[in-house]
């Protein structure tokens, strides 16, 4: 990407992690010299200790896996529904769009937490109410970006393809999907971030396992080290998911540098 900016690898890494490392050092020092009260602030070393303890007794793997599974199922469902629907809305069926898009616009603004009570009522306390909520929050970015991607396809390209006698299927496959891929990926990235973000409060409200439950449990029992470790863990997962999607985007959408979003 930065071909014009010649930087050594060292500066690059320093830029990426320097401030973070500095922040952690200052934090640790503040805890060590008792500047920050121990009852409110857990030091990075304590966090690492708690983390290792959790990793040792399987607690960490169990709850992380549950949360990630929920997020994954909700997200996959949203992709399965959102991408085809978004493509249809993007202009292949004009009448369908004008009929359904006002409704979708309205539905897209539903507050997921107002729905959460309803989901719990309808689907019970099990896994499905959480998955349904993740599905709901991640559906909209995917849907909107998919339809935006189709709308932004260069009409000339489609005309060209048509005049060369391509069938509708191959126009979709060769022109529409590649042109809209950048938008699609940015929708997927937004959706993955939102899904993971909203999962935590959902698990706090109605779950007995998972990362959100871990946080609320630490909060109720006033376990400050556990609270900080859980927070750090969630940040770590958030970073990981974001990096994963950035990586995928860079690998798949190689022909376009900037999505503009």
């Amino acid at each position: 990407m930065s071909t014009f900016k010649q930087e050594s690898i060292f500066t690059n890494y320093f830029y990426k992690f320097g401030s973070l490392v500095l922040f952690i050092i200052v934090w640790q020092l503040a805890c060590s010299i008792k500047l920050a009260p121990e009852t409110f602030v857990a030091s990075p070393l304590v966090i690492v200790k708690t983390f290792l303890k959790w990793a040792g007794n399987g607690f960490l793997v169990k709850h992380s896996l549950i949360s990630l599974t929920r997020a994954f199922y909700g997200f996959i469902l949203a992709v399965a529904v959102g991408v085809p629907l978004g493509f249809m809305l993007g202009g292949w069926f004009k009448n369908f769009e004008s009929l359904i898009s006002p409704l979708l616009r309205f539905l897209g603004q539903f507050n997921p937490f107002a729905l959460f009570s309803v989901f719990m009522l309808l689907f019970g306390l099990g896994e499905f109410s959480k998955v349904a909520m993740i599905f709901w929050v991640s559906l909209w970015p995917i849907l909107y970006n998919a339809s935006l991607g189709v709308k932004s396809v260069e009409p000339l390209h489609i005309k060209l393809a048509r005049s060369m006698g391509l069938t509708r299927i191959s126009i979709l496959w060769r022109i529409v999907i590649p042109s809209s891929a950048a938008f699609l990926f940015s929708g997927l990235r937004q959706a993955s971030a939102t899904a993971f973000f909203m999962l935590i409060p959902a698990e706090m409200l109605g779950a007995s396992r998972g990362l959100g439950w871990m946080i609320i449990n630490a909060q109720i029992n006033y376990q400050i080290p556990q609270l900080y470790t859980g927070t750090a863990l969630i940040v770590g997962f958030g970073l990981l998911i974001d990096t994963l999607f950035k990586f995928l985007e860079a690998k798949v959408v190689t022909w376009r540098q900037d999505t503009g979003l």
């Binding site: 401030s19 409110f40 935590i200 409060p201 609270l227 927070t231 940040v235 970073l239």
Partner: peptide, 26 residues
Amino acid sequence: GWTLEPLFRVFGLINPYCLFPLLVVF
């Protein structure tokens, strides 16, 4: 700003729910 931006990106990822108990304490 250039140096601190990655740190702020990490801050942006902190789930507000995890902060809530701390804010109550303070």
